[in-house]
Amino acid sequence: MPANPKYLTPAFLPRFLKITAAILGGYFVAVSFHLALAAWFNRANVLMTMAYSGFMLWVALMVIAFLAKSAWKIWGIYILLTLVFCLFIYLGQTYHPTAK
């Protein structure tokens, strides 16, 4: 049974943006989140945990990207989250440099 055409995205750009948001944007958010945690907590424990929880978070962010209505909005959210986590990384390294 073929897919219903009303549920398919006919344009190339929104489809491309959703795919790149799912793969790249989700990866950037997942990694920056775990690096922000590593800047504040025990770095070795967080980075070892990242091997598993980072992958699960990345997959969840991929699913969210494909469920979103607007590809531009999901890219904006992912970029904003990445920048917020980068701010936490900066603050963690500046005010809590002894996280080992």
Rank of each mutant, 00 (worst) to 15 (best):
M1G: 10
N4F: 00
P5C: 03
P5R: 14
P5G: 06
K6S: 14
Y7Q: 13
A11C: 10
A11T: 15
F12T: 15
F16E: 14
L17C: 10
L17F: 14
L17M: 15
I19K: 00
T20K: 02
T20G: 11
A22N: 04
A22Y: 01
I23Q: 11
G26C: 04
G26M: 03
Y27H: 08
Y27D: 12
Y27E: 14
F28Q: 14
V29E: 04
V29P: 02
A30Q: 05
V31Y: 02
V31P: 01
V31N: 05
F33L: 13
F33W: 10
H34F: 11
L37I: 06
A39K: 00
A39S: 10
A39E: 01
W40P: 04
F41G: 02
F41W: 07
R43T: 08
A44T: 15
A44E: 13
N45P: 04
N45M: 12
N45R: 11
M48R: 15
T49K: 04
A51Q: 03
G54L: 06
F55S: 08
F55Y: 04
M56S: 12
W58S: 02
A60Q: 11
A60P: 08
L61M: 07
L61I: 02
M62C: 07
V63A: 09
V63I: 06
V63Q: 12
V63C: 06
I64Y: 09
A65C: 09
A65D: 02
F66E: 01
A68P: 02
K69V: 06
S70L: 13
S70T: 04
A71Q: 03
A71H: 03
A71V: 05
W72V: 09
W72A: 09
W72H: 11
K73I: 15
K73L: 15
W75R: 06
G76P: 14
I77E: 03
I77V: 15
Y78D: 07
I79Y: 04
I79M: 12
T82S: 14
F85A: 09
L87Y: 11
F88H: 05
F88K: 01
I89C: 12
Y90K: 03
L91A: 11
G92L: 03
G92H: 02
G92R: 00
G92N: 03
Y95K: 09
Y95D: 05
T98M: 11
